[in-house]
Simulated assay, not measured.
Amino acid sequence: MYSSSFGNETALDNAHVNGALIRVRWNDIEPEEGVFDFLLIDQFLELIKERNLEWSLGIIAGESSPAWLFENENVGSFEITDYYNNVKRIPKMWDTQVNVKLNQLALALAAKYGNDEDLALVYAPLMTANGIEGHFNGVPEAVLINAGFTAERWVNSVKEVAENFAMAFPDKAIAVEVHDLINDSAIPNQIITDLWNDSSLNQRVGAAIWWISGKTTYQPNLLDALTAFPGDIYAQAIGRSDQTERFKDDDYSTMFAQAKTMGVRYIELWEYEFVNNTFPQEFADFNAYANVTYK
């Protein structure tokens, strides 16, 4: 069990917490091209280190990419209006220079943190609605296609960034967050399957789902593919436990049962759960399951 954030650092004091996710925006850590400022990561990391916990790293790209990337004449971008009516400008991930710059980011991060034994997982940043999850959050298919999106372009560009991060961090687990795209579960399934089967990556690139809920009605085909997926699965709860409608039968505990069925090895819960110690028996049970199954 990991905390998905810790604005309230008492989340890190819960006895069931093994670690925490540090997520920062790309434009905050590389405000000028090639000039990196890791102070924000280090400030979060200090709170984790003083508690002897592990950590994961997620760099948010998408609209949080640096201004200099948008100004690059070899990088196109397009505008989306997401499910929440937020208007965002997103770089085109399939433009070659995007992954060139993401690779340089990966190398800089690895030079700084790659030898940290407490770093357990690194997420591949994506050019999506929120910059890390693998979808565009309700954007019509036509908007994506008009911007130049194709299944082949998307698969190839996501695989490239995941491969680059895996090579930069040669002994760390890498996660790619997946959702259906253009109503097609075959696209994310191909990405994670190809990456898992790539012998050069030593089966270090797994699938992440930041929408586990116990329900099977949302993206059912992708859930089936993930259940059959032989690789590692990393999850984040779809919401807080007091948002009962987001979970099967209004029951937060159904999420843990689903995680075991799918073979999830790691779950990030919202810090609310650990601050309030909402389901201590379920936390302890999942940790015991994961420790026996995966360690």
Rank of each mutant, 00 (worst) to 15 (best):
Y2M: 11
G7I: 15
G7Q: 15
N8P: 08
G19T: 04
I22R: 01
I29S: 03
P31R: 08
F36A: 07
L45D: 07
N52A: 09
G58Y: 05
I60L: 01
G62E: 03
E63A: 11
A67S: 15
F70C: 07
G76A: 05
E79C: 11
N86M: 14
P91D: 05
M93I: 13
T96G: 11
Q97R: 09
V100F: 08
L102G: 04
N103R: 09
A106D: 03
A106R: 01
K112Q: 12
K112A: 09
E117V: 12
A120G: 09
I132F: 15
F136V: 04
E141Y: 12
A142W: 10
G148E: 06
N156S: 13
V158P: 09
E160K: 12
A162T: 08
F165H: 00
A166L: 03
A173C: 12
A173V: 15
E177L: 10
D184W: 07
I187R: 02
D194A: 04
W196L: 05
A207S: 07
A208F: 06
W210T: 13
T217A: 10
Y218H: 13
Y218E: 15
L222W: 00
F229W: 01
A235T: 01
R240M: 11
S241C: 03
D242F: 11
Y252S: 01
Y252A: 02
F256A: 00
M262K: 05
R265P: 10
E273H: 02
E273M: 03
N277R: 02
E282Y: 10
F286R: 00
A288Q: 12
V292W: 11
V292F: 12
T293P: 06
T293V: 08
